[in-house]
Simulated assay, not measured.
Amino acid sequence: MTLFRSLAIALALIAVFAVTRKAEAAQTYKLAVTDLEGMEELQREFARFREVLNTATGYDFELFPVNNRTAAVEALRSKNVDFVLTGPAEYVVFKKLTNATPVIGFSRPDYFSSVVVMADSGYTSLEDLKGQKVAFGDVGSTSKHLGPMQIFSDHGINALSDLEPMYIDQNVGWQALKRGDVAAFGTTNSKFMQLREKDELPPGAFRVIARGPDLPNDVLLVGPHVDQKVVDTVRNVFDSHSDELIAALLVGEENQKYQGMKFISSIKDSDYNYVREMYATIGYPQYAEFVGD
């Protein structure tokens, strides 16, 4: 009888242990990406990244599509999503509305904004552009809208009142610059280089008359409801499996902006104060909502 009872207890303990291990292995976390809309695009760009992250952490990350940045904030606040990959302009709003914290930074080389003119236009300084039409990119974009606006502000020019700002698609803005419909084109350096490379005009036909500082990193955020041990595990994996995760990230066509990137773990909230200045420059000093949503 004693032997039977001991065997029964042992089997019960084994069963409890197995259930516990299964529960631990089944820990699931939702990951959203604010730049992409719809599951199809999210899967195409991040499926391989998710696979590598799952294997390295032992967790089950599920991709969670969001229609816009505001929806991502609501999902994080309601705990329907746990991690969000987003840009610098979005970070400051997420921080204010959700108290999310950075897990890891996605450092992009040559990530800065530029103001471009035609080389034969006669415009050689930002001061020359006062009263002129200037094309900017998508409203709310860190590098194509806020960054170029801040470049003017840093030089004592109010882009909202001293210029005639136009917010248009970057490809449309590029053609408008070449036709002379706008005097200048505010964009991110990588987009400028891409457009110039594909253009039939020689590189010398364009001139950068101002550039901003390197912008803060894109960042993987985590909601305050996620256990710190999980956060530490994920952060450590980005260090120990860096090469694999970057290679997986670069499978996606839209993720080619991360070519040459490095994961940065020493991310501070103060790194994004320059972005907060950008919001004040365009008339949103509280940075409590997304511009353009």
Score class of each variant (00 low, 15 high):
M39V: 14
M39D: 14
R48V: 10
A75Q: 02
E62L: 09
F49Y: 11
A72I: 03
F49Q: 04
E37A: 03
A72G: 07
A47F: 11
R69C: 12
E37N: 09
F64A: 04
M39L: 15
L53S: 13
N68S: 07
E74N: 13
F61N: 06
P65K: 03
P65E: 00
R48C: 04
T57S: 14
M39W: 12
R50F: 01
A47E: 07
E40H: 04
E45R: 00
F61S: 01
P65I: 04
M39E: 14
M39H: 13
E40N: 00
T57V: 09
E62D: 07
G58S: 15
T55A: 15
F64H: 09
N54A: 05
V66H: 01
R44E: 11
G58H: 15
N68R: 01
N68Y: 01
E74A: 11
E51L: 11
V73R: 04
G58Q: 14
P65F: 02
L76A: 09
T70W: 04
R69Y: 11
F49E: 02
F49V: 08
G38Y: 14
T55S: 15
Q43T: 02
Q43G: 03
D60E: 13
R44F: 10
Q43I: 06
E74Y: 15
L53V: 11
R48D: 06
D60P: 08
A56T: 13
R44K: 15
R77C: 15
P65Q: 00
N68G: 08
D60G: 11
E45D: 09
V66A: 09
A71F: 06
N54K: 03
E40K: 02
E62K: 04
T70V: 06
L76G: 01
E40G: 07
F46H: 07
Q43C: 03
D60L: 11
P65S: 00
E37R: 10
L53W: 15
G58D: 14
E74C: 08
V52M: 05
N67A: 12
V73M: 00
V73A: 06
E40D: 04
N67T: 12
N54Q: 03
L42K: 02
F46Y: 07
E41A: 10
R48E: 12
L42N: 00
V52F: 07
N67W: 01
E37P: 02
